[in-house]
């Protein structure tokens, strides 16, 4: 039960934190149309996060929590601390320039696309249902971000250089996506979580495909940063949560 809760929170946190990051572009996109595109993606991700948080909170409440303080999607998003968040380090990395943002989205969407394809067959009905519902959105995120990576990688000298820099910044966080956390291993045999070992070669193959079309090199022998899934984050997450949680912490129970 605890492992399932932690796994659901991990899925939710990934979507929430990346959604929050992308939303920082709102009103600042390079052109109006792309401002709307990235904000739409934000909303898709936050929608996924809500579904997972609602499910996690129902599991937590079933497990038994003081009745006067039941878990809810809001309490999970707004009242947990950094160490309780289980998102991958990739999702919390700064937006950087547009190239860095679309590359982060591409890495993540490619992973999420493969992940949700597997989770559609999860033994846990609720997780399977959320995966089915989200997969269409994710397919679009993947298509959109792949095209941008190609456009920038194979674009001008400047866009190529910036994309190379983005790869330098982000590649070290991509490996964590495929390192199972302790709670994932616990429920792996129950057919609930997906087998990340199966996803990794597919992810690498697809990234290689897009990178070669984008005229970009695939980095090799890069030291991989991990820890996010177990609650050990980069300094970035603290800043994100400070902004995300400020209202609820300052005005507890505040509602729109």
């Amino acid at each position: 039960m605890n492992a399932l809760i932690n796994y659901t929170l991990h899925l939710a946190d990934n979507s929430l934190i990346l959604g929050q990051r992308n939303s920082e572009w709102c009103g600042h996109g390079p052109v109006l149309e792309q401002d709307i595109a990235i904000t739409n993606i934000s909303l898709d991700l936050i929608g996924q996060a809500r579904n997972f948080y609602q499910y996690a909170s129902s599991l937590i409440n079933q497990r038994g929590k003081p009745l006067n303080n039941p878990a809810s999607e809001d309490s999970l998003a707004y009242l947990r601390t950094e160490r309780e968040f289980k998102n991958c380090l990739l999702t919390e990395q700064p937006n950087g320039d547009w190239g860095q943002t679309v590359l982060r989205q591409f890495f993540f969407s490619q992973y999420q696309y493969l992940l949700f394809q597997q989770l559609q067959n999860s033994k846990d009905e609720q997780i399977a249902a959320i995966a089915v519902k989200s997969l269409k959105e994710v397919s679009y995120h993947l298509r959109w971000s792949s095209e941008w990576v190609i456009r920038l990688g194979d674009g001008t000298e400047e866009s190529h250089r910036r994309t190379l820099k983005a790869i330098d910044e982000l590649w070290m966080y991509s490996g964590e996506l495929f390192q199972p956390a302790s709670y994932e291993l616990l429920i792996l045999n129950e057919g609930i979580a997906s087998d990340l070992d199966l996803l990794k070669p597919k992810w690498e193959e697809k990234v290689k495909e897009i990178f070669s079309e984008a005229n970009l090199p695939v980095p090799e022998n890069v030291f991989i940063q991990t820890g996010g899934k177990e609650g050990r984050h980069t300094e970035q997450l603290g800043y994100i949560l400070a902004e995300l949680q400020f209202m609820q912490r300052t005005y507890p129970g505040n509602e729109w």
């Binding site: 149309e33 709307i36 679009y140 456009r151």
Partner: peptide, 20 residues
């Protein structure tokens, strides 16, 4: 109407701007 670099981007921008 909207701005886009090519037809593909125009379709995607239209999807995001006009069919949400």
């Amino acid at each position: 109407s909207l701005h886009a670099a090519d037809a593909q981007m125009a379709i995607e921008n239209a999807r995001d701007v006009y069919t949400r």
